[in-house]
Design a protein around this nucleic acid. Sequence first.
DNA 1: TGATATGGTGGAGATATGCAAACCACCTCA
DNA 2: TGAGGTGGTTTGCATATCTCCACCATATCA
Lengths: 158, 158
Amino acid sequence: MQTTSSPGNESRHKIELALGERINALISATRALSERSAAHFHPRLQPAAFHIARWLYAFGPARPSEVAEAVGMDRSSTSTLIGKMRSLGLLDSSPAPDDRRSIIVRLSAEGRQRVAATLEERGKEFYTRTQDWSTDDLARLVELLGRLTAERSSETES
Amino acid sequence: MQTTSSPGNESRHKIELALGERINALISATRALSERSAAHFHPRLQPAAFHIARWLYAFGPARPSEVAEAVGMDRSSTSTLIGKMRSLGLLDSSPAPDDRRSIIVRLSAEGRQRVAATLEERGKEFYTRTQDWSTDDLARLVELLGRLTAERSSETES
DNA sequence: TGATATGGTGGAGATATGCAAACCACCTCA
DNA sequence: TGAGGTGGTTTGCATATCTCCACCATATCA
């Protein structure tokens, strides 16, 4: 399955570049939406809390430092935000099984519901783009994106 | 092609929801990358300049207010950043043909090159995820993402 | 055991960005 | 023509976030 050094490599590389550009276009196109969602996520929380909550929503429970690394925020801000979200009941924490210094944070039912509501509400405009897509294409895109994001850090650790 | 009111609608809606979740997972997964790219884009520019440059890279020349709206920043910050990028030679502006109050900004060759370099450099880690994909799947994903982001504001205006 | 490293938390100061308001040039409409 | 609106720019201010830095509890390694 490794095609890294076979001929025909060049067009493969072109496709990979094209994928990079498309993903970047998607991220650019959704950035305004992200920021506005973050701003409206919770009236008593800073915008960045939404990025944390959304990551937990997408990838499940994790340690604070893992979250900070994954969303590109520093640990102290992440820690503060996590504290606030916990006191608002949006997420719970439990001790990490393998390291007593550490904890595992996870969205509470309310937190999950609130993220879902924010995504749903703010995403409406964007998803009108797929109105005239065939269900097949839609399903294929879902499947491919799923594969793209499935990996979850299992190899970024040492 | 409009299936909006036919039966079988419910599974359609499920797929649309799933797409939303996948796109959000992708955005969450790439957020750290975005922020770090933004921070390293140019030593004399604030991070947000990268978001502007990247949008222009993806969607082409536009008016400042259009850019601000699209990337979810306010106009004053956008204006300032555009000024700085212009003085650094990363982008050019020309008068808008239809409105003499307005201008059109576009990436210069150097700006385009610098965005591409940033994307390339910082994106390496991420794109290892597709190493064992078939070229077919890769191409399909490129095509579908292209359709998703193709529209470019032609209907968000009045 | 001791020495050093790491995860989480908190604070102090610097910076980036948002928000509000003012201004000018220009557009639109009456 | 005049009145009010809009695009771009600039300024002042509020706030969010980052960058260190220190601290504690625990882990790891000698």
